[in-house]
Design a binder for these strands. Sequence first.
DNA 1: TTCTGTGAAAAGTTTCACAGCA
DNA 2: TGCTGTGAAACTTTTCACAGAA
Lengths: 254, 254
Amino acid sequence: MATGRTHRPATRSRGIPEATVARLPLYLRALTALSERSVPTVSSEELAAAAGVNSAKLRKDFSYLGSYGTRGVGYDVEYLVYQISRELGLTQDWPVVIVGIGNLGAALANYGGFASRGFRVAALIDADPAMAGKPVAGIPVRHTDDLEKIIKDNGVSIGVIATPAGAAQQVCDRLVAAGVTSILNFAPTVLSVPDGVDVRKVDLSIELQILAFHEQRKAGEETPAGDGALPAATPRAASADQGPDGDVPAVMPA
Amino acid sequence: MATGRTHRPATRSRGIPEATVARLPLYLRALTALSERSVPTVSSEELAAAAGVNSAKLRKDFSYLGSYGTRGVGYDVEYLVYQISRELGLTQDWPVVIVGIGNLGAALANYGGFASRGFRVAALIDADPAMAGKPVAGIPVRHTDDLEKIIKDNGVSIGVIATPAGAAQQVCDRLVAAGVTSILNFAPTVLSVPDGVDVRKVDLSIELQILAFHEQRKAGEETPAGDGALPAATPRAASADQGPDGDVPAVMPA
DNA sequence: TTCTGTGAAAAGTTTCACAGCA
DNA sequence: TGCTGTGAAACTTTTCACAGAA
């Protein structure tokens, strides 16, 4: 597999850990909500609670971005919104295409959190000729035949795949060949892509299976005998899910 | 105050790392495909490729479950399917409810990977009285008023929230109070739940933002010298993992 | 005083590399 | 021989705990 060693030890100022990157959108959402309520500053403790993490982690995360807080006071909400947006690349416009306009594709097209965050749905694409021209979420659906042209005309670099599993790899290949370098995959299949292309996947059934794993564990461990009624919100001691390994609800009513 | 989260001193065999649990569904899917093609055995190398991970990781993962392979040969597909299914708790039936039957809820209701994996949609629930009785994916939608009764009558312990953000916490509270102990949240909001309840979230806009971060980086840094024309082969090791769950779980415990 | 920013320790995860079984 | 299973090393992420700015 030739080529350079593992790139990116890059301990430059630009070395933001992946785990931190994955949490920035969470902070951003919490901050946006505060901003809308015109809250001027927020402490790491408050913001952490709103984002569902603990404050040490949040401070550490922010320390990778720079020193944007004020000791004894907290963080300036507006300023932090801007800094995180910039870090995430949301100060620019990202045209995206959604391929596969079934229920899921339609749900995505209708999803509001889109436009408000620097993303713009440049086109909806489906293989069914019967759908062509019909508007979904106010955007006319276009046929797969035009995929390459759409990508190029709009300078799209992010594609969302919401097709059935069987079509996903092929769609992916076409997107990549046309110039897309980031893909969000909702189809339950592993995509293979060339180096330099990012793929993230969202998979409902995997999430459910992980829940089932923990659920099973809860049922198996410590269940006190009999007790026909459901324990519902009874605060369980040591919490069964915490057992195997972390997966701790970081959010606590506390 | 609470704390006192004791640490499991790497106890007995039941200590499967969370990262491993998150990959088991992936292996299971690849194995199921092999099983359908009547492939009798598979090596760690082949299975790893199909699941989009490397073989050392796969072997390590399986070592937490037990020694189910045969040296010099590989793994028996059927046996492994069974062992992983059992480990994940998929040998039992999990009734789930989906709350919020918009486009997304409908997409979830129609999602096939459901039934085939030990999950059964026990009910669809929506707050809109106009939807009540109308079938979606062959299942009649019921009104939110009946939520508690539905949960109890069906012994539901897993709930899926696909409502707008504003309704999510309230729905969550009702689910939990009625006995649900695992929640899959699609609403873009942080849920707070009592100890002992697991929440996993799936958030489209977060995934897109993470992609945007990497996309921005690609555009920014780039070649050390010559500026190649096409990105496709740019040797960036950063996060070009093919396939699944590259580095950071797409979903985090709440 | 209050709250950030951060070294250092701990915990968790991945990768390496090879012993040893079929 | 060919492949699994696994210690040990390398790396990543989280947590602790406290110095120091406002």
